[in-house]
Design a protein around this nucleic acid. Structure first.
Length: 269
DNA sequence: TAGGCCATCTGGTCCT
DNA sequence: AGGACCAGATGGCCTA
């Protein structure tokens, strides 16, 4: 957490500390509104701004910031440095958040590249949520099918739904080892399920365009749960995927899109 | 040009 | 007391 994440800032225009200081000085020296750091590109006259720090607005600002005791103990320059320190922390915190967001984008099943516009934050979160739901459904489907396959050949000796792992079958006598690397290839579900993430790249792009264009991802999730839910046409040669997940989108997906995230659908900023 | 997205500043609140 | 977290405000950049 204490790592220097400012190096990974997705915003190349992220200001250096000196620029931040200049922008803050610039702001507190007479400008009433907040000053975005992007405005600090042109270096102001630092010495002149420092001399003007004792303006009425500066005083009002510092008076609001601190208690009477603090006002007595701290000089204006100390208050200024404290404000810069707070700003720097907040900036770093947001940078860390952006780094985490970039990390999330990297593992999301949508096309990455210079020609593809980066997912917005809200689109990244929504896509990630749908992706997790889709993977969960894939896992459940796999469990169910494995249960059907191996459960029918034994006398109730296998209960994947209870055990929850595919590798459990390895302990059964006479049953070939089943693992993520060697699952049965005769069933149509498994290859698509494993390659689902890669095959969802195109839907990911549609998610981007959807959000960018008319926020379809945010306002009206379809019955197929948005870009991921509507994109289960990953089964080869244009034929629909035979797995039940592709046939029947889970109802809770769309419901959660609107119920569990009300602010996303109603908050218009 | 309007709207979306974003970074930053700022003050308030909560936690350790 | 200091730091983390949050939300509002503001302005810049970009795109349709």
């Amino acid at each position: 957490m204490d790592s220097d994440t400012s190096r990974f800032s997705s915003r190349p225009s992220s200001p250096e500390v000196d620029d931040i200081f200049l922008s803050t000085v610039k702001k507190t020296s007479g400008f009433s509104g907040t000053v975005s750091s992007t405005q600090s590109d042109s270096p102001p006259e630092l010495s002149a701004d420092l001399r003007s720090l004792s303006s009425n607005e500066e005083d009002a600002l510092t008076l609001k910031m601190l208690s009477k005791k603090d006002r007595k103990l701290l000089s204006e320059s100390e208050l200024q440095m404290m404000r810069l320190k707070i700003n720097s922390r907040e900036r770093k915190r947001m940078h860390d958040l952006n780094v985490a967001m970039d990390g999330l984008r990297e593992v999301m099943p949508y096309a990455h590249g210079p020609s593809v516009r980066k997912l917005s934050k809200i689109a990244t979160l929504l896509l990630a949520r749908n992706y997790i739901l889709m993977l969960s459904n894939s896992l459940e489907e796999m469990k169910r099918l494995v249960s059907e396959i191996y459960g029918s050949g034994h006398h109730g000796g296998f209960h994947p739904s209870a055990c929850g792992t595919l590798t459990h079958t390895a302990s059964l006598p006479g049953i070939p080892t089943v693992s993520h690397a060697s699952h049965p290839v005769h069933h149509p579900l498994l290859p698509p399920a494993v390659s689902t993430a890669a095959s969802l790249s195109a839907p990911g792009i549609s998610a981007v365009t959807s959000v960018r264009s008319h926020h379809g991802l945010l306002k009206a999730p379809s019955a197929s749960a948005g870009p991921l839910g509507s994109s289960f046409q990953h089964w080869g040669t244009g034929m629909p995927c035979p797995c039940s997940m592709c046939q029947v989108p889970p109802p809770h997906v769309s419901s959660m899109s609107t119920v569990s995230m009300p602010r996303l659908t109603t908050d218009s900023k």
